[in-house]
Design a protein around this nucleic acid. Structure first.
Length: 364
DNA sequence: AATTCGGGGGT
DNA sequence: ACCCCAGAATT
């Protein structure tokens, strides 16, 4: 089933209908129809697992701040992470920064446009390499993203889970057979727009669809069942207790370096537990003792937040405390003591970014 | 070959 | 609630 063969005539029928449908489509996206491989790359990284509407403002900010790949390479990773703050999947930003340096050095700032070169770069996988190569150089590589999987699963009745490695082979093989070699860029844009605008995940209007006659799912009433995806398992719950420890106009923060969520971002001193834990129990922990929390003032100021990630359910408890100068100076050796007015220079997880607002701190 | 990386919007 | 998003890296 991995090598499903699509008849030549059927492939042409599909691509013709698709390209003809796409004649009237223009979403006005700034990275569509351009040839600058750097900008195309930037858009593809931002849009990985991210909706166009969510990524668009980030794209504009990045282009304004980093007009060229060299300008990004000359910044710091912290600069890039700060601009990326709130977008999620932060390894994209770290890999993007790394690749900007690589391209600036190895390619002298001229971004590669061939699939074989692109696929070697960090943060660029099969999808992004095909997208950049086809958009920037019209190289005939078929993209397979979530939109394409949905369209192909329905039109050609592909019922294997794309997340499985067999699924990846099948979908990319089918996609490549459908690609009209001489119109690669246009076709790739068309099939993604088709998935995003017409063949939508839930409740597509098949009655007005140009593919209705040739669509397997429409004929067999399988539209709601395709594409097939494995069910996801239960979210792991984590309890994060952050302590905003202040002294005069300064606050303690640290950078996350572990192989975990938010690597590279900053946070306030943290005590993590596996279950909900009240403050007086937290005080018993070694971490609380090393922080000297018991002697601090203001533990009645508590905020709670709940945030769901794709694999975890996070329970935040945020305390604001004031401590004496000798304690603060001791802690400032393990943490960073930062003036509250400078907190906005650091990249925080979305939920914590709220606490970088200076209005929360009474600065004299 | 499966899991793990955020955060937001649609239904 | 649950699903899905212009996926890639890691285990």
């Amino acid at each position: 089933m991995i090598n499903k063969r699509i008849e030549r005539k059927k492939a042409l029928d599909f691509s013709d209908k698709l390209l003809s449908w796409h004649q009237n489509i223009n979403r006005g996206l700034p990275w569509v129809g351009i040839k600058d491989a750097y900008r195309i790359w930037l858009s593809e990284i931002i849009l990985q697992q991210t909706r166009v509407e969510q990524g668009l403002p980030y794209y504009q900010q990045f282009i304004r701040r980093f007009p060229t790949v060299r300008s990004m390479a000359e910044a710091t990773e912290d600069d890039v992470l700060r601009l990326w703050q709130g977008l999620g999947y932060y390894s994209r930003a770290r890999n993007m920064y790394y690749t900007a340096g690589m391209v600036t050095q190895q390619y002298r700032g001229k971004f590669p446009t061939s699939y074989d070169e692109l696929i070697k770069l960090k943060g660029i996988g099969a999808y992004s390499a095909a997208a950049i190569a086809s958009f920037a150089a019209n190289e005939p590589r078929a993209v397979v993203d979530g939109n394409v999987v949905r369209v192909l699963a329905r039109v050609f009745g592909l019922s294997i889970d794309y997340q499985r490695s067999e699924g990846k082979k099948l979908f990319s093989h089918v996609a490549q057979q459908l690609l009209p070699v001489e119109k690669a860029g246009r076709y790739n844009q068309a099939i993604m727009d088709f998935g995003a605008l017409q063949c939508v995940p839930r409740g597509p209007e098949c009655g007005s669809c140009v593919m209705e006659r040739i669509c397997y799912a429409s004929r067999k009433k399988q539209v709601a069942r395709l594409p097939v995806k494995r069910k996801k398992h239960e979210l792991k719950k984590r309890y994060l207790h952050f302590f905003i420890i202040c002294h005069q106009d300064e606050v303690l923060i640290e950078q996350r370096t572990a192989k975990d969520i938010w690597k590279g971002l900053y946070q306030f001193p943290l005590i993590e537990t596996e279950a909900e834990t009240p403050f007086n129990e937290l005080l018993q922990s070694d971490k609380a003792k090393s922080l000297g929390l018991e002697a601090m003032q203001g533990m009645k100021d508590i905020n709670r937040h709940k945030q769901k990630l794709s694999h975890q359910e996070l329970h935040f408890t945020v305390y604001q405390l004031w401590c004496r100068s000798n304690t603060f100076n001791t802690l400032a050796r393990q943490y960073m003591a930062v003036p509250a007015i400078h907190l906005k220079k650091y990249s925080f997880p979305k939920t914590l970014a709220y606490y970088t607002d200076i209005s929360l701190y009474s600065i004299k």
